[in-house]
Design a binder for these strands. Structure first.
Lengths: 228, 228
DNA sequence: AGAATAGTGTCTGTTAGACATTATTAA
DNA sequence: TTAATAATGTCTAACAGACACTATTCT
C-alpha cells in the first residue's frame, strides 16, 4: 500500500461548570509543535494499552485529571494537511463532562493543566485548531442539553433541582422554566429522589441522584425552541 | 514517538430508496483480507489528493458509482485490535444518501458494486464489522428522519409530496401523516414549489425541488414520538 | 359519473412556557 | 412574622396525530 498513513490523534474537550461558568480543561504542551501553548488533552493511540479510541480518550484524561469523566462521547473527526505543521493529520475529538469538585483538587496539583472559562478563550492562543474544536463541542453540548439531561453529568452525586437548573442555564446561556425541568426530571425516570433534603436559605430542597446504570434519556422535543 | 500508528480507513454507508426498499451500496473486495466478500466502499486517505476525510469518502464513492452523493455526513469512528486481521485499526464511517436513478446506470456497469436491501443483509456475510456499521448508520438515518427533511436527498431533483412520504415511511418503517409532512415542508423553507405538476392517476401533484444552497433544517420535535 | 390521488380544515393530544399560588424553612 | 427558596396548579401556545372533507384529474 503506497499511502502515507496520516498522523492520528485523539483529543478531548472536557467541560465542567463552576460558579455559573462553563469551563474547559486545557494543558500546556510539553513538546513541539506549539511548545508551551494551551491545548486540549489528548495524544496518540497506544495500541497495546487502549482497547479502542474511547479508552485512549479516557486514559489521556485520567493522566491529566486523575479522574474518569462522568460522560464521554465522540464529537467528530477533524482532518487536513494544514492543521498540524508536522503534516497531514486526523484527529478524533471527544467531548466529556465532569463535576467540578471531582477533579478540582487533582487539577490544582498538576501545574500544566488548568480550567479556563469558555468565555475567556478569545484571550488565549490555542495550539492547532483547538479553539475551533472547542466551539464545535460547545455547540453540540448546547444542542444536546435541549433534548436530554446530559448536564446532570456536571453535578455531584447528590444534587437539587435548582443546581441542575443552574448548570443547564449556564450551558445554554438562557433561562429555563423550573417547572419544565421538574416535569422532565419526573418523566425521564433517570433520577432517584433521596431520603434527604438540603438547606438552601428557604424551604429544604429535595436531593436527587442519577439512578445506577441509568441511560441518558432523549426527549422528543427541544426546550427553548424560540430564539430570543 | 514510540507508538505504532494504527491503520486508518474511511468507509461509507451509501443508502438509497428504491421500490419502497432501503438499500445500501456494497462492493466486492478485490484483495485480502475478506477477498471476494461484500464490504462497504472505502479505503485509505490519500494525503496528496484528499483535502480531508470528507474528500476521501467522496472520492471512494465516486470511484464506485461515478456520482457524488446528495448528502454525506460523518457517522462515527469504530476502532479496536480485533476488527481487522491485519492489526489494530481505526475506521471513520460516513453515511450518505443518493437518489436511486442518479447512480443506477453506473452501478450496473460495475459488476463489483451492488445495491443490497437492508432487510436482506442477514443473508450475507459482510467483511470486517461492516454489518454492525450499517446498523449504526441505519439507526442514525432513522433518528434524523424524525427531526429533519434528510430523506429529501434520496429523491430526484423534482419530486412530489407523495414521493417524499414514501421515502420517509420506507426509512422509518412506519406510516406518517401526509398532513404533518406538508406542514413541515412548508415550515422548513427548504423547498420550492415548481411551476409544474405531475400526473399520478388522480389529481395532478405539485412538484417541488430543494432550493439551491438550502441547509438541512432541524425541527424542534420528533415525528412519531409514540411506540406502536 | 366514479375512481383515484392531491390538498385543506379542524379537532384532539401532548408537552413546553408563563406565572400565580401554596409550602416549608431559617432568622 | 418575614424573607427566601421549593414545589405545585393551571392556563396558554405550538405543533403533531387523526381523519373528514373538498378539489382535480383520468377513464
Amino acid at each position: 500500500m503506497a499511502f502515507k498513513n496520516p498522523l492520528f490523534t485523539v483529543d478531548s474537550v472536557l467541560f465542567t461548570v463552576h460558579n455559573n461558568t462553563l469551563k474547559v480543561l486545557l494543558v500546556q504542551r510539553a513538546e513541539a509543535p506549539f511548545l508551551g501553548q494551551w491545548a486540549l488533552p489528548g495524544g496518540f493511540v497506544d495500541v497495546d494499552q487502549d482497547a479502542n479510541t474511547d479508552a485512549t480518550a479516557h486514559r489521556k484524561l485520567r493522566d491529566k485529571t486523575g479522574f474518569t469523566p462522568q460522560y464521554l462521547e465522540q464529537l467528530q473527526v477533524i482532518s487536513g494537511a494544514q492543521r498540524d505543521p508536522r503534516g497531514y493529520s486526523v484527529t478524533l475529538a471527544y467531548y466529556a463532562l465532569v463535576a467540578h469538585q471531582n477533579v478540582s483538587p487533582k487539577i490544582a496539583s498538576v501545574a500544566l493543566a488548568q480550567w479556563i472559562a469558555v468565555q475567556d478563550l478569545p484571550q488565549y492562543t490555542l495550539a492547532f485548531d483547538h479553539a475551533h474544536i472547542i466551539a464545535l463541542a460547545q455547540a453540540r453540548l448546547q444542542q444536546k442539553t435541549l433534548y436530554s439531561m446530559i448536564p446532570a453529568f456536571c453535578l455531584p452525586e447528590r444534587f437539587t433541582i435548582a443546581q441542575l437548573q443552574q448548570v443547564i442555564e449556564t450551558i445554554i446561556e438562557k433561562p429555563i422554566q423550573r417547572k419544565s425541568l421538574m416535569r422532565r426530571l419526573e418523566a425521564s425516570d433517570m433520577f432517584a429522589a433521596l431520603d434527604e433534603k438540603t438547606s438552601s436559605g428557604g424551604r429544604l430542597a429535595q436531593l436527587y441522584s442519577i439512578k445506577a446504570g441509568a441511560d441518558l434519556v432523549n426527549f422528543e422535543r427541544n426546550l427553548m425552541a424560540k430564539d430570543e
